[in-house]
């Protein structure tokens, strides 16, 4: 069999995951903030929609992305016309699929950390003359930050492992949309591909393990910072 470009696959996976998390981060934080602090009608529904990719079969998520962001989809046509961004059979599509799948995990971690911030500390800062924006910048955000970072790391790890939605949405194209899990899947189809599978699988385990350790360390730091006395 043809030896695949292992480092190319790893690099593509890291790129797809990094872009997915980077684009997702502000949206996830805004959603987490709304769910943690907001009081509005339809909050339960929003919560459910955000969590949908967590429980939906990934193939269904991929198919829905295809409907929305494909060349005939409303969102796809609009993005192509205004920004010139296309997703079909491109690594950007893989990043979008990874972002959608990572979103619920990121929102969850961030929401918990925002909810853990003591409102009494924010009140204290306000009596000291701090504006709402300054309270957010200097009190809320730093205290919630470990959770935000943990959420981003978890999202990154989830993105690295994304398979079902990606292969449904943007197919399995070497060098363009073939991330680590998709490359492992392809190698499994080829006679004598076990050596490649093993190498890719070991890399996957190491990357995921590293992400989880970082996330855990952040979560522990969060627990320590929130007490005053």
């Amino acid at each position: 069999m043809i030896e695949p470009d292992v480092w190319g696959i790893v690099w593509l996976s890291l790129k797809v995951s990094a872009v997915a998390v980077g684009v997702c981060l502000p949206l996830a934080f805004a959603l987490a903030w709304a769910l943690a602090r907001g009081r509005f009608a339809g909050k339960v529904l929003l919560d459910a929609v955000v969590h949908l990719p967590l429980v939906l079969p990934p193939v269904v998520t991929g198919w829905l992305l295809l409907l929305a962001f494909g060349p005939q989809g409303p969102a796809g046509r609009w993005l192509e016309a205004t920004l010139g961004v296309t997703f079909m059979f491109r690594w950007t599509g893989a990043a979008l699929a990874a972002a959608v799948m990572a979103l619920p995990l990121m929102v969850r971690a961030m929401r918990l950390s925002i909810e853990a911030v003591d409102l009494r500390l924010e009140a204290a800062a306000m009596t000291l003359g701090a504006s709402r924006w300054r309270v957010f910048r200097t009190i809320t955000l730093p205290l919630a930050l470990p959770g935000v970072v943990a959420g981003a790391v978890l999202g990154f790890a989830r993105s690295l492992g994304e398979f079902g939605a990606t292969i449904t949405f943007v197919s399995n194209i070497p060098g363009e949309t073939q991330t680590l899990p998709l490359a492992i899947y392809s190698a499994l189809q080829v006679p004598g591909g076990e050596a490649v599978v093993t190498r890719l699988a070991v890399i996957s385990v190491l990357l995921s393990l590293a992400a989880l350790v970082v996330s855990e360390v952040m979560a522990r730091r969060m627990g320590r910072g929130s007490h005053v006395l």
Partner: peptide, 30 residues
């Protein structure tokens, strides 16, 4: 609240846990 200039000493102190004592003291300093 921000404009009332009340020096509020809370029952539970409410020091900012991520800031050192000096930074806590300086937080609202004019």
């Amino acid at each position: 609240v921000q404009a009332r200039r009340a020096g509020y000493v809370f029952q539970d102190a409410r020091l900012f846990p991520h800031l050192r004592v000096r930074e806590n003291l300086a937080y609202g300093m004019k």
